[in-house]
Amino acid sequence: MVDLRVSLSGVELQNPVIPASGCFGFGQEFRAFYDIDMLGSFSFKGTTSAPRFGNELPRVAECEAGMLNSVGLQNPGIDAVLAEELPRLKEHFHQPLIANISGFSIEEYAACCEKIDRCDQVGIIELNISCPNVHGGGLAFGADPDCAARVTAACKRVSGKPLYVKLSPNVTDIAAIAKACESAGADGLSLINTLLGMRIDLKTRRPLLANKMGGFSGPAVFPVALRMVWQVYEAVRIPIIGMGGVSSAGDVIEMMLAGAAAVQVGAANLVNPYACKEIIERLPMEMERLGIASLREIVGQAH
């Protein structure tokens, strides 16, 4: 028997496979396909203090091995998430949740964290300081070590749950941002968010996305994400949740070897709704094939 269990800052997960924020809604849609209680956890849709429609459409484009999105944090707002989405989930999901929080000011981040901190279903708070979609929003926090540190510290003050900061890859030195968050009290880091990208419609000669630019993710970004997890692992001592292009059990193991204590799966869920279930079922076989007895033991082994 192989051991799939991992732990993140004292939060025990039955396996390291976690659907990524924005690619799993609040879990309900996937219940039509499988029992979502088999997941290690899941990170719910990026939530802000007020409800948001998000960006204009079209919000999606693609290339051969990935997709671009410019959803712009459409969500029902923190109060509706607490009053409706999480109670609705209670019966079907008994694993610790990851609450993905976004904001446009330090006060907004802190206000959301304070509210979510009281919710028993949430095991970890994940601060999205990196969403590239919102003008004047996420990007500024994630791109500057001082801003990243300030928002981390402000949220840490109001919440007792493990606080993970989700980093943007759209920076020159991700290790510097990671260190700034660690010094400011972050309990862990999630990376990577989407890479800023764009596509142009050849017929209209205009950008395809209404927002012009969008966040690029999917298999094409895996080597970039892996490299960043590797670099951040060398720079900090806090646990890392690795993500970016993960689509198979092999990718999960590779991410963990680079330094991820757990792994999120984003875009793959949208193309194959069974992606996470298939990865979880495949992992034991991959581990046996590779002679891995316990997943915890391989974290960072490639260094």
Binding site: C23, Q28, G54, V60, Q74
Partner: peptide
């Protein structure tokens, strides 16, 4: 018709404003 990501309600790329909300 809208450009779609998932087609089953998970990604919010196909949103539309309606009288009854999004």
């Amino acid at each position: 018709e809208r450009r779609m990501g998932c087609g089953f309600g998970a990604c919010m790329v196909c949103s539309c404003r309606t009288v009854a909300g999004y």
